[in-house]
Amino acid sequence: MNELFYKIKELKDESLRSKHEQLVTGIINAINDKLIKKGDRLPSINNMVKEVGFARKTIVRAYEDLKNRGIVESKNFKGYYIANTNTNSKLKIALLLYAFQAFHEDFYNTFRKELGKKYHIDIFFHHNNIEVFKNILDTINGKYGMYVIAPIPVPEVGIMLRKIPSEKLLIIDRYIEMPSDYSYLSQEFENSTYQRLQELHNGINNYEKVVLFYRGDSDYPIGIKNGFTKFIQDYSIKGSIQKTYKKGTLQKNTLYFFISDTNLWQVLKDTVKEGFKLGEEIGIITHNDNDAKEIIFNGITTISADFKVMAQEAALFVKDKIPVHKIIPSEIKKRNSL
Results as ranks from 00 to 15, higher is better:
residue 220 Y to I: 05
residue 11 L to N: 03
residue 159 I to F: 08
residue 311 A to P: 03
residue 168 K to M: 08
residue 47 N to W: 00
residue 19 K to W: 03
residue 119 Y to T: 07
residue 40 D to A: 13
residue 263 N to C: 00
residue 227 G to R: 02
residue 229 T to S: 15
residue 240 S to L: 05
residue 332 I to E: 04
residue 103 F to L: 05
residue 36 I to H: 10
residue 318 V to M: 04
residue 320 D to Y: 09
residue 74 S to V: 07
residue 206 N to H: 13
residue 226 N to L: 14
residue 109 N to R: 14
residue 305 A to Y: 03
residue 193 T to M: 15
residue 221 P to Q: 00
residue 287 H to K: 10
residue 65 D to G: 00
residue 289 D to S: 07
residue 255 L to T: 01
residue 150 A to L: 00
residue 8 I to G: 04
residue 201 H to D: 11
residue 146 M to I: 15
residue 271 T to I: 05
residue 309 V to N: 08
residue 107 F to G: 05
residue 237 I to T: 01
residue 127 H to N: 11
residue 257 F to G: 00
residue 93 I to E: 00
residue 166 S to M: 06
residue 264 L to G: 06
residue 75 K to D: 07
residue 215 R to M: 13
residue 323 P to V: 02
residue 188 E to T: 13
residue 216 G to W: 06
residue 305 A to D: 05
residue 78 K to D: 12
residue 111 F to E: 08
residue 265 W to C: 10
residue 168 K to H: 10
residue 32 N to E: 15
residue 295 I to H: 08
residue 264 L to V: 04
residue 185 L to G: 03
residue 14 E to L: 12
residue 337 S to V: 03
residue 124 F to T: 03
residue 52 V to F: 09
residue 123 I to F: 09
residue 260 S to W: 11
residue 176 I to E: 04
residue 55 A to G: 04
residue 298 N to G: 01
residue 218 S to L: 09
residue 323 P to Q: 05
residue 79 G to H: 04
residue 291 D to E: 13
residue 253 N to D: 14
residue 100 F to Q: 05
residue 111 F to V: 10
residue 323 P to F: 06
residue 273 K to A: 12
residue 20 H to T: 05
residue 137 L to H: 07
residue 22 Q to R: 15
residue 188 E to Q: 13
residue 3 E to K: 15
residue 278 L to N: 05
residue 168 K to W: 01
residue 14 E to D: 12
residue 15 S to K: 12
residue 12 K to C: 07
residue 82 I to F: 02
residue 45 I to Y: 08
residue 150 A to Y: 02
residue 291 D to G: 10
residue 103 F to W: 11
residue 176 I to G: 02
residue 161 L to P: 01
residue 36 I to C: 07
residue 9 K to F: 07
residue 296 I to S: 08
residue 192 S to R: 08
residue 299 G to E: 02
